[in-house]
């Protein structure tokens, strides 16, 4: 892929990830399932697409910039701690599980969602200085099976439409 084209795609994906994580705040998933920190993880769709189309070397700055700019646009410092630990742990897990041939986008996305929740719980334990918060993790992990499946469905739809080879 040409350098300018890949740069444009990176910028586009960062903007998309930011927009998705902002939109997500208006989906009151915690009314349905009352757990702290529960969300769909729509920004993970972007991370998945970036991993497959640009590789983990470019997915990393995309996740980092999404988290930092998300904090600037209203997440705040504690929000940054949560999104960074969650986002980076998810990216690492998805990069590693992407090397395992038996996983499709679905398996990778489910493991990524689970890792994201583990990261957030770790951040909460650190912030609150309390080991008791770990008790929420099993429920969040169960939910991540469904959210991971949902984001994988979206990502696989996008990947089918977005060609992998440069046709220009």
């Amino acid at each position: 892929m040409k350098k300018s084209k890949s740069l444009a795609l990176c910028a586009l994906l960062i903007a998309l990830a930011l927009a998705l994580s902002y939109t997500e705040r208006f989906l009151p998933l915690q009314l349905l399932i009352p757990l702290p920190g529960i969300k769909l993880g729509l920004a993970n769709i972007v991370t998945l697409v970036a991993l497959y189309r640009l590789g983990s070397g470019k997915a990393l700055p995309i996740v980092l910039l999404r988290c930092i700019m998300g904090a600037v646009f209203g997440g705040g410092i504690s929000g940054l701690l949560f999104s960074l630990t969650g986002g980076l742990l998810a990216l690492g897990t998805m990069t590693l599980s992407g090397r395992i041939r038996s996983f499709s986008v679905y398996g990778i996305s489910i493991l990524g969602s689970a890792a994201h929740n583990i990261g957030q719980i770790l951040a909460a334990m650190l912030l609150m200085q309390s080991p008791y918060i770990l008790a929420y993790l099993p429920y969040l992990l169960l939910v991540s099976l469904f959210t991971g499946f949902a984001t994988a469905t979206a990502a696989s739809g996008i990947l089918k439409l977005l060609p992998s080879t440069d046709r220009s």
Binding site: L51, Y52, R53, G55, S56, T95, S97, G98, R99, I100, R101, S102, F103, S104, V105, Y106, G107, I108, I110, L111, A114, L141, L142, S144, L145, F149, A152, S156, L159, K160, S164
Partner: peptide, 22 residues
């Protein structure tokens, strides 16, 4: 990880589900 991924839910993905459940 630029190889074309498998885009549909396969048998191998149950490993991921079981891992998370365990």
């Amino acid at each position: 990880m630029k190889k074309e991924p498998n885009l549909s839910f396969g048998r191998g993905d149950w490993i991921a589900v079981v891992l998370v459940l365990v």
